[in-house]
Design a protein around this nucleic acid. Structure first.
Length: 807
RNA sequence: GCCAGUGUGGCGAAAUGGCAGACGCAAGGGACUUAAAAUCCCUCGGGGGCAACUCCGUGUCGGUUCGAGUCCGACCACUGGCACCA
């Protein structure tokens, strides 16, 4: 058979009969299977996409065969940096290259033979989609969840442009190799921190990989502590610090402000000005990862000013140091050298005081820095309190003077959504001289992204150079006004696409609330683990924010989540054009057909782990499918022969063992073991077909095999099903269920261990209970010989597995 | 550096705390064939032994347990993420 031709034939029949179209009349039975949509880059679909989409589709097909009404849409995350960079390099407009890539990828996806219902397709760069992305922005703005503030960007002083982190290599611009600095710009933020507590709490009830939940918890980073106010000695200024160790306040011998802290300029004395300015410049060149490194030297400079300990008024020097981040806590810390490792290193380096105020539970001093919780000492009225109690007592005392309070702090930061780039959704805001920030009225959406824009990097957002776009009138007062020229982070587009799919053609609203309440949440979401903290958190935030605005009535978008592993290039590296290790599925699909290719991906890797690409085994899979084909033909020849044989029981055992395993493996995304079991069944059928044959058993077993394999080889199994005289379609032919009786065996081999070493193997009656097994084993002649005269101390019996005799 | 993972034959991998390596690939040997392809059969972690058999073996080192690839502790290596790649 020519597999490629067969696939074309069935693909057409499926499309013509709309076999996989979502049945809107049976939403109660829906099963929403969503794969993270892909970015239409110049690499087209590589084998990694195929792995993600092809096998998720196999899961969806299994669920369909089990009777579910599958909603499996596909679309494109089409805005973003790579298309713009490609345009800067080649002059090809991002819209042109993106639409062309989408067209190509659609064809590849269709060849895959997945159940995607193309009626629900979407692309985030189309005005009928980003109109609603802009609408989302307006709702967040209206509800106080979108605001502007100053925040740093990577700035290349030579190219005069903002760089993505990806474009900064070792602190240098990837294009011109100038040193990149951080520069402040006024930018839009979403207030995701308002939802920190709920985002944390709801994780508990999600059917997500545990490791992903742990990462999100750590990312949100809740910590209970105190916010303390340090007045400056000048009596005019103050700053706040966040600490989880208020019990160590009297051990504070200095304070450190982040270099970006606004107070730095105010309090730095004239003789220290030069050093502080120099230090700030240096800090602007250091990445956050470097600054957080615990092994990096703890640099810093003195401001020349002193602050007062809020508890006893003691004078402490105020320093500037880059190990303090402006974005975490309050951007300032109290330095307690004796009880914090980083503070200890800083104090040692700069010759600052080290004062112990905590002893261990035995009242002794441990080695410095002693950071564990212990007993307060040298702290006056607080002496003898445990650290836990002391933290609260100190904060409570300071509360009375307004110098402290208990607070909950989160590591999570608000989401910066402004991008000084062209290829994204314009932020729908107008700046008016009279009215200030004015949101674009909803009925004027979309704010269209103009086509004829000069996006070469030269210091301003590309849209700022488009006069027609920038100059507008104020929607409120009608006076001349200017549009916002930044675009939205593409993560905004992908934070709500799962809500748009089911109602993608709605022109009145982003989605119909009644419909979405029935269609969501997504029942199975499949995508890479690299999205654990950002995309998956942003999408959860959007769902919760929309719920609170009254647009949804559920709390979480993705009920169940699975991560596929990454298929790496043959060199073991992540596939990328620059490394030249991108593997296209096309040559394989053209040669072997998409079903064989999918079966190869299913069998060759553990799904959640992936691994380097290697096509060594693909021929073997093709041969296996050909064996199945021969077995199907054989089954049709012999189906009317009806005689019992001695091998019937064994074949029926393997058949049901396979059915049982495959039914468990598909929902667990354990495709490699499912294929292994089906290979065993193929082997059993081959072995059985020698001499006498029970044609009915053989034929029925083959019908089971066809249906078990259909989720992984849908086209070919459709053909096999037809050859076997069965009614279209195989996917609706029912999924085989196990006959447990066939799995019961009268005898089974167990291992006999003596002192935990295997010494013998015995066939044993499966009806025996533990005592019976023990008696049988101890009375066995071989075992008696092995034991000789040793005294049996203990016997451990694991039914159907082993017996361990301790002598 | 921090957070989260991963580490098992020549290779991809399997294994509710219970006989490590299922199922495959590659390799070697054989059958069929004038020959090749295809197909089928056998061997296939390492050491020792003519053999029955025996010892060692799941990144390294320790621990818990009758029993550890699996649980605990320390370490090493690699992968993903670290807030503007998506």
């Amino acid at each position: 058979m020519d597999y490629v031709e067969i696939e074309k034939k069935w693909n057409k029949i499926w499309a013509d009969t709309k076999l996989y179209a979502f049945d809107k009349t049976k939403i109660d039975n829906k099963h929403y299977v969503l794969e993270m949509f892909s970015y239409p880059s110049g690499d087209k679909l590589h084998v990694g996409h195929w792995y993600n989409y092809g096998l998720s589709d196999s899961y969806a097909r299994f669920m369909r065969a089990k009777g579910k009404n599958i909603f499996e849409p596909m679309g494109f995350d089409a805005f973003g940096l790579p298309a713009e960079n490609y345009a800067i390099k080649t002059g090809i407009h991002p819209q042109d290259s993106t639409l062309k890539n989408i067209e190509y990828m659609e064809r590849q996806l269709k060849d895959m033979g997945a159940m995607f219902d193309w009626d629900y397709e979407l692309a985030t760069c189309m005005p009928d989609y980003y109109r609603w992305t802009q609408w989302m922005f307006l709702q967040l703005f209206k509800h106080g969840l979108a605001y502007r503030k100053n925040a740093p960007v990577n700035w290349c002083p030579s190219c005069n442009t903002v760089l993505a982190n990806e474009q900064v290599i070792d602190g240098k611009c990837e294009r011109c190799e100038s040193t990149v600095i951080r520069k402040n710009l006024t930018q839009w933020f979403f207030k995701i921190t308002d939802y920190a507590e709920e985002l944390l709490n709801c994780l508990d009830n999600l059917d997500w990989p545990e490791r992903t939940k742990i990462m999100q918890r750590n990312w949100i980073g809740k910590s209970e502590g105190a916010e303390l106010v340090f007045d400056m000695q000048d009596g005019k200024n103050n700053f706040k610090v966040f600490t989880t160790r208020a019990d160590t306040l009297l051990g504070c011998s200095y304070a450190v402000l982040a270099p970006e802290h606004p107070l730095v300029d105010i309090i730095t004395t004239s003789e220290n000005k030069a050093a502080v300015e120099e230090y700030k410049l240096q800090a602007a060149k250091t990445t956050e990862i470097e600054r957080l490194s615990t092994s990096k030297e703890k640099t810093g400079v003195f401001t020349g000013s002193y602050a007062l300990n809020p508890l006893n008024g003691e004078k402490v020097p105020v320093w500037v140091g880059d190990y303090v981040l402006y974005s975490y806590g309050t951007g300032a810390i109290m330095g307690v050298a004796a009880h914090d490792e980083r503070d200890y290193k800083f104090a040692k380096k700069h010759g600052l005081n080290i004062k112990r105020v905590i002893k261990n539970a035995n009242g002794e001093n441990d080695d410095l820095p002693y950071t564990e919780y212990g007993i307060m000492t040298d702290s006056g009225e607080f002496d003898g309190l445990t650290s836990e109690k002391g933290c609260i007592a100190v904060a409570k005392k300071l509360e009375k003077t307004g110098k402290g309070k208990l607070v909950t702090n989160y590591r999570l930061r608000d989401w910066l959504v402004s991008r000084q780039r062209y290829w994204g959704a314009p932020i729908p805001v107008v700046y008016c001289e009279h009215c200030g920030i004015v949101p674009v009225p909803e009925e004027q959406l979309p704010v269209r992204l103009p086509y004829d824009v000069n996006f070469t990097p030269d210091g301003v957002s590309p849209l700022a150079k488009h006069e027609e776009f920038v100059n507008t009138v104020c929607p409120k007062c009608g006076a001349k006004a200017k549009r916002e020229v930044d675009t939205l982070d593409t993560f905004v587009c992908s934070s709500w696409y799962y809500l748009r799919y089911p109602d993608n053609k709605n022109t009145d609203k982003p989605f119909d609330m009644a419909l979405i309440d029935k269609m969501l949440p997504v029942d199975k979401y499949v995508g890479g683990p690299e999205h654990a903290c950002m995309h998956l958190l942003y999408a959860r935030f959007f769902t919760k924010a929309l719920r609170d605005m009254g647009y949804l009535h559920f709390d979480e978008p993705f009920r169940s989540l699975v991560h596929q592993g990454a298929i790496l290039g043959p060199d073991g590296n992540r596939m990328s054009k620059s490394k030249g290790n991108v593997i296209s599925p096309d040559p394989y699909v053209n040669k072997y057909g998409s079903d064989v290719f999918r079966a190869y991906l299913a069998f060759g890797f553990k799904y959640i782990e992936g691994g380097p690409w290697n096509d060594d085994g693909i021929k073997a899979i093709a041969k296996w499918i050909e064996r199945v084909e021969r077995i199907v033909e054989r089954a049709n020849e012999v189906k009317n022969i009806n005689e019992k044989t001695a091998n019937d029981e064994e074949l029926n055992f393997v058949r049901n063992n396979t059915i049982k395993a495959v039914n468990e493996d598909y929902p667990a995304f354990s495709f490699n073991t499912a294929v292994a079991r089906m290979m065993e069944l193929t082997n059993a059928l081959n072995k059985y077909d020698e001499g006498a044959i029970n044609g009915k058993l053989y034929f029925d077993t083959v019908l089971d095999l066809i249906r078990l394999l259909a989720p992984i080889c849908p086209h070919l199994c459709e053909e096999f099903w037809q050859i076997s005289g069965q009614k279209f379609s195989v996917i609706d032919g029912g999924f085989p269920t196990v006959d447990e009786r066939a799995l019961v065996r009268s005898e089974i081999e167990i291992a006999v261990q003596i002192n935990s070493k295997v010494r013998a193997k015995l066939m044993i009656d499966t009806s025996l209970d533990e005592k019976g097994i023990q008696r049988f084993v101890l009375e066995n002649e071989t075992v008696k010989k092995l034991l000789a005269d040793a005294a049996v101390k203990k016997v451990i019996v694991i039914p159907n597995r082993l017996v361990n005799i301790i002598v």
